[in-house]
Nucleic acid binder design. Structure first.
Lengths: 248, 248
DNA sequence: CGCGCAGTTGAAAGTTTTCAAATGCAGTGG
DNA sequence: CCACTGCATTTGAAAACTTTCAACTGCGCG
């Protein structure tokens, strides 16, 4: 059977995240706020450790482990999740290059979630005590960190709204458009990309059954809004997608 | 018709929040971390302004107004909410005495939500620039504020989980037990209390229709788990309620 | 005393989940 | 290189839950 939307050749060159394509937001912070004298892009903080690469399925950290560091994604992608005693899992976020992982754990001695690599990835490790010390010596760094945390709260609030008020279709559109915007920020294509996560992870994150995710994506594909073949996605009609988000 | 659970007389003395019954968490911070030399309970920061009382329905601040201060609830209760262009509202939190409002706005020049009094309330105003200055001069204050924000992220994550994975009954049980715990923290009864918010607000917050909230409460009342008469609530069988939260 | 909003209740409709099964894809070992 | 195995994805049909719509009740306040 002929697909309504044939995935164009261009998807073969769709974006991958296994490239270091984005400076970590801490480096951005440093170069923009505090170190105009340093060379562009130079990650100057001697206390920040460049981590090894990490394979798909491996942990950056597990819940309840002693909290020592934040992590900045250099390449690849991660998911964070909570896990109940009964094994029930709730994915709390997907992290792309430049994102910082662990901000929800700074008030405890242990990590409050687990972080797992979705694909071959790399990262930087930022020891928190030293970051705090650095921030206390530099009010702009402190201010920036308040901002980063505040933004994390807002992101979570947006998700709350999504879960509380939006239909399955709307949730998935928001999800796709959010990913699209984040890829764009990273100078990657906003319309042709590869999902770093499985359908079941999308469903878990958005509070939907896998089957629902699959059905909605199929429906969008059939009506020409997107092309989806496995993890390769093309947003074919962005304005129609945006329209869906405006359903009252 | 005879109610299965008659609300006991004691409810007549159930807790109200229109009393200043809890020090704000900033004061707690100060006395515990930085000012052991000061007298207990003395709110020493000259930059913190004691606000007037505020009537039910009045605003602490509206979304998009210039962000200048955090607010600490002294008495009463507040709700915060987002509002879309189309008028759709999403309540993002309920705040009791001691809670701090506005943490999600520190990364922008304007408030990212509106805050409205649910009843006659009072508050303190904490100008943020001065708080930042204070924090930068005192690393323990800075640390505490990272903690407070981190906790806010976690609370939001918990809500996400609730909305994403839990049934109407489970959501309402969590909501009631959460309120109960917060009243207890404030040295009020954990089992007899008055809801500061309307059913419709509970529904909005939990992603449920008002009717569903009403039906679930009625069901709990009939099965003897709680007594609910208007906003007066008695948790009659806490262990049974806890049991419901464990449904996988 | 009556208006008006908050809360409750019933029945029907709608959306999403659950269960079951088929298909597809990728990595492994022969 | 291919068959095999296991997991991911898709699809269909029935079931479950929640919402919507409509109507009624009750309480608070002027």
């Amino acid at each position: 059977m002929a697909a309504v939307n044939v995935i164009p050749e261009s998807r073969l060159s769709s974006n991958r995240l296994n490239l270091s394509c984005f400076k970590c937001s801490l480096c951005n912070l440093c170069s923009s706020y505090t170190l105009n004298t340093k060379e562009e892009g130079d990650c100057f903080h001697e206390f920040i450790k460049r981590g090894d690469t990490i394979n798909r399925g491996e942990y950056l950290f597990k819940e309840h482990r002693t909290f020592e560091s934040l992590f900045s994604v250099r390449s690849g992608a991660f998911k964070t999740y909570l896990e109940a005693e009964n094994g029930e899992v709730q994915i709390t976020g997907f992290y792309l290059p430049g994102d910082i992982i662990g901000l929800d754990s700074t008030n405890t001695n242990t990590y409050n979630c687990s972080a797992k690599a979705l694909e071959l990835s790399s990262f930087c490790e930022i020891p928190f005590p030293q970051l705090e010390k650095f921030a206390s010596e530099n009010s702009q760094v402190q201010h920036h960190f308040f901002s980063v945390m505040s933004a994390e709260i807002q992101t979570s609030r947006q998700l709350t709204w999504l879960l509380s008020k939006k239909s399955a279709e709307e949730r998935i559109v928001f999800f796709l458009l959010n990913l699209s915007a984040r890829f764009k920020q990273r100078n990657l294509s906003a319309t042709h990309f590869r999902l770093p996560m499985a359908r079941i992870d999308i469903g878990n994150y958005l509070g939907l059954a896998v089957e629902t995710v699959s059905r909605v994506l199929t429906r969008f594909h059939k009506t020409g809004l997107i092309s989806a073949q496995g993890r390769e996605v093309v947003l074919s009609d962005v304005s129609a997608l945006v329209e869906i988000t405006k359903h009252d």
